[in-house]
Every structure is written in structure tokens, then in C-alpha cells.
Amino acid sequence: MTLKTFAPRGSRRSLLAGALLGLAVMAGAPAAAKDVAGGKDHPLVGRYDGATLQLYRAKDYEEQRLLTKKITGADIRAAGGRRLSDANAIKVAGKAFRLKYAGPKGRSALEVARNLQDGLKAKGFEILFQCRAAECSDLNGGELYFALNDESPMGRGDIRSGIPDVLYASAVLRRPEGDVYAGVYVGQFGDTPETLVDVVETRPMEAEKIVFVDASAMRKAIDADGRVALYGVLFDFDKATVRDDSRPTLDEIGKLLTANPELKVVIAGHTDAKGGFDYNVDLSKRRAAAVAAMLAKQHGVSPARLQPFGVGMASPVATNDTEAGRAKNRRVELVKVPE
């Protein structure tokens, strides 16, 4: 004999009403926001619980500046209009990530920022700089926005402008296998915070095994091949400004030309294939001219012995389809001029 159980009549009505109410709530509830396809948290930074990942970018090798000091009008003027420079930021290169999160709704930017900063500290990060609103710049709140958008090679327009309450922190994790740098920006947009995370895992690029070439090796390469490719002459992103860390290679070029006064060279600038052809030719020519000017000024090399030339993207030595290949294509070459 099978026993059947029944709920009392009143209970059955309550259950039915509850089920109908649940269906109605489900039908009217908005769908939960989903993370961007292919995106994932950086394991050393993570996310604030309940936030949604809206943007994910990763590059095998890129250079980033992270703010380490308040942005001032004096520093901007001294840097020729750049908001991030050696005066207020650290320049790091390696595998780079940019992530943007929204939410959770109802939380404050301060709460999200402080939680992320505490999380970095718990993982061993050292906070290099942190600021809120007017503490970030002596000009206006928009300076930090423009610095992170307009001066970052990882992308533009990734955060909204005109947000009055913003917080920023930069940090570094020292590791034997390579330091990790992180920049965390949180802004309040209505009742929803938005977070931008930049991470750079420093490591040598594949071409760095041939970055430094001394004067003797340059001479041997020129005698054997009529040219030498140099990866130690570096420039600010998308500019013809020679970076300070190019000095060792420039000094060796100076030694080469001083020890061989009969040697005349074409200074050929090469770029990767990003950007338009004519733009890259012009950029590479301006970069080559900047190198020639520094050799003449700092090492006394006669300008008559130096011929700047812009090759642009026209003579690659590797594929331009990967960041590692593009890094090999960005170079300066010395080409011997026949006597």
C-alpha cells in the first residue's frame, strides 16, 4: 500500500502563490552582467567581489609609465606637455595587461580602492604612490584621466572623464623572476564605481640578448656585413625623443666613430608595422636625426659623417604579427658609406 501525503488546503494555496511570485520575479529581473569574452582577472591583483570585467587587453611586450608622484604644472611644462615623465612616473616594460571593471553598484570608489590596495599589500606589493582627487594633481582632476588615457600605449578612452572622486595607487612586487608593477585607478560614476587596472610583468624581451653591442663588436659587424643592427637605442612611445637608458649604446657608437675617423655611416631608423606607412617613415627619420644630433653634440662627431635616414616598416627582420617580432623590427642600424 502506497501512502500519499497532502498539504493542507491553505498550504497548497500558499505554495502556489509563492511559486507564481517567484516566476514573476525571475521574469522581471535583469540578467546578471557577464565578463567580457576571453577576459580574466590578473592573479596578483584580483577584483572586488561583485565587479564585472568589461575590458581585457594583454600584450607580450609593452612599455608603461606608472605615476609615483603628484602631477604638477611645472613637471608638465618641463616635460614638453607630457603629464607622465621621469619627474613623476616610473617607466617599466614587459608583459602588459589592462583590465576595466564596473561595480558593484552601491559601493563607493573609496571602499573598492582601499580593498584592492590592501589586497596588493597582502600579496607582498610595496605601495609606491597613492592619491585621491586633488592629491593626484595640482591642476585639476582631469590630469590623471588624460595621463592614463592619452599617454598609455595600452589604449585610450578606457575610463570616463569628469568624475569628481577618483583614487589611484601604484605598487611593485619584487621577485627574482622579474618585478611586477601595478597601477589601480578607481572612479565613482553615480552609484557605481569603475576600476582600471594596469599590470606590467617585467622581463627581458627576446631581442634583449643583443641589446648591448660594444664598439669593437660594431666594427666587426660593419667590416663583415657593412651594417650593424642596434637595439639599445630606445625612444619614448610614438616620439623621436631618445630615452636616457640609450646612453650606453650611444657612448659605444661615439667610441666607434672617434676611433675610426674615416668611417661615415647612414643612421637608419626602423619601426614596426603599427601605424600608417608614411607616418612610420617620418617617425623613423626623426628618430635617426635625433641620434645624429646627440652624437654630434655629446661626442663631437662631425655631422658630415652622419646621414639620418628613415626606413619605417619597409625592412623587417621578423614578422610584424607578434609583439616579439615587432620588438625585433624596432631598431637603429649603422650602415657604412663607401669611401
Rank of each mutant, 00 (worst) to 15 (best):
A96Q: 00
G50Y: 13
S108M: 09
P8S: 14
T52N: 06
D60E: 14
G50T: 10
R98P: 03
K40F: 03
G81H: 05
L128W: 05
K4I: 08
A29G: 04
P30I: 05
G39K: 03
L15A: 13
L3A: 11
A113M: 09
L53N: 01
A96I: 01
G94F: 01
C131R: 09
P8E: 13
Y48L: 02
F97P: 00
R9T: 13
V92M: 04
A33Q: 12
A78D: 08
K34A: 15
A24N: 06
G103H: 03
A74D: 10
L3N: 10
T72N: 08
K59V: 12
G81N: 04
V25M: 10
L67E: 04
P30V: 02
D86F: 02
R98F: 11
D41I: 00
V45W: 00
G46L: 02
A31T: 14
G22V: 15
K59D: 11
H42D: 05
L99Q: 05
R132V: 11
R98G: 06
I127E: 07
S14D: 13
Q54F: 01
N115P: 01
G106Q: 10
R114I: 10
G106L: 12
I71E: 01
S108T: 15
A24T: 13
G28N: 11
T72C: 03
Y101A: 05
S108R: 12
L66F: 14
Y48I: 04
T72A: 05
A113K: 03
A74Y: 04
R9Q: 12
L120F: 00
L67R: 00
K91G: 09
A27Q: 11
A51K: 06
G50M: 10
L67N: 03
L84H: 01
L16D: 12
L84D: 01
G119P: 07
A31G: 10
L128A: 08
N115S: 10
C131D: 09
V36W: 01
A32D: 11
L53H: 02
G46P: 02
A37S: 11
C131A: 15
T72F: 06
P43N: 04
L15M: 14
A134K: 13
T5K: 15
M26D: 12
D35Y: 01
K121T: 07
R132I: 08
L20V: 15
R77G: 07
L23C: 14
F129Q: 00
R98Y: 08
R98D: 09
A93P: 06
A102N: 15
R114F: 07
K105F: 13
Y101H: 07
N88Y: 07
A134R: 11
G124Y: 03
K40T: 06
S14I: 14
P8Q: 12
A19L: 14
P43I: 06
D49F: 08
R13Q: 07
D49H: 12
V112C: 07
R9E: 13
D75Y: 02
K91I: 07
G22K: 06
K59L: 13
V112H: 06
K105N: 14
L84K: 04
H42G: 02
R57I: 10
A133K: 13
T5D: 09
